[in-house]
Design a protein around this nucleic acid. Sequence first.
DNA 1: CTTGACCTTCCAGTTAGTGGAAGCACTATC
DNA 2: GATAGTGCTTCCACTAACTGGAAGGTCAAG
Lengths: 137, 137
Amino acid sequence: MNIGDVSALSGVPAKTIRYYEDIGLIAPPRSANGYRVFGEADLHRLTFLGRARSLGFSIDDCRALLQLYEDNTRASADVKQIAQKHLARIDAKVEELTAMHRTLSHLIHACAGDNRPDCPILEDLATSPGPTRRSKA
Amino acid sequence: MNIGDVSALSGVPAKTIRYYEDIGLIAPPRSANGYRVFGEADLHRLTFLGRARSLGFSIDDCRALLQLYEDNTRASADVKQIAQKHLARIDAKVEELTAMHRTLSHLIHACAGDNRPDCPILEDLATSPGPTRRSKA
DNA sequence: CTTGACCTTCCAGTTAGTGGAAGCACTATC
DNA sequence: GATAGTGCTTCCACTAACTGGAAGGTCAAG
């Protein structure tokens, strides 16, 4: 298989596949003309990577997961731990975004959005920093 | 005021302040010794930037908001539009993360997490992109 | 033989900074 | 005046994970 074929089959862009080779996630051999030659194993790795990345795992996580994936003596606890840490990061991010959402939607609601200059959004942005003082209490 | 002073007052790191000058968000004059000299207006701009960034606005958004902030003839509608677009991006991100959370917590729950190799998480990651539909945003 | 699709490498750009080195400037102390 | 310590300056490199594009080699078809 050439790079275009595995790309189509795995859903991972050719450019990304080359990048993954660069950083050592895959190591396809080359044919006489210099083209990368991919086998079934490479296709599986790339599919695995595509799925893991789509779940938000970092490249470093992917590297570790891939190693466990190909280690038949692995302990599922190791996989679970990586996933749990990742889930915690996701939750933290969601919380952060949710806080932004709250503040922002509140401000948007308070803003007339007409052609006058008065704007609670700008007023909030201009407030001094310090201990997050979003509610007057 | 020197950079250390505005940094302490605005909460924006000195390094970041220099970066903001680099990309044209502020333009403090220099004193004879080459030090940047900050006035009240600069302090306000930096405070504004710090708050806007903490709400997740991009640097480009900040540039636009800052311009509106200092334009007394602005229409609050323009501010509101920027905020609404940003809110939409936040919502999209939250949805994406929530989808990840769902899948991941389901898989984690199904994984024994012991010293045996059987692992639903790895099994899912190894699935072709067909069955479990993922959408790219 | 030429066209076009596919492959190659390498360079640059993306976001929003952060870390660190080398070197002046200022203040205080001895 | 010499020295120490802190703060300021610039510049370069690095982060995450690609993506775009240029310049050029390869291959199958017509």
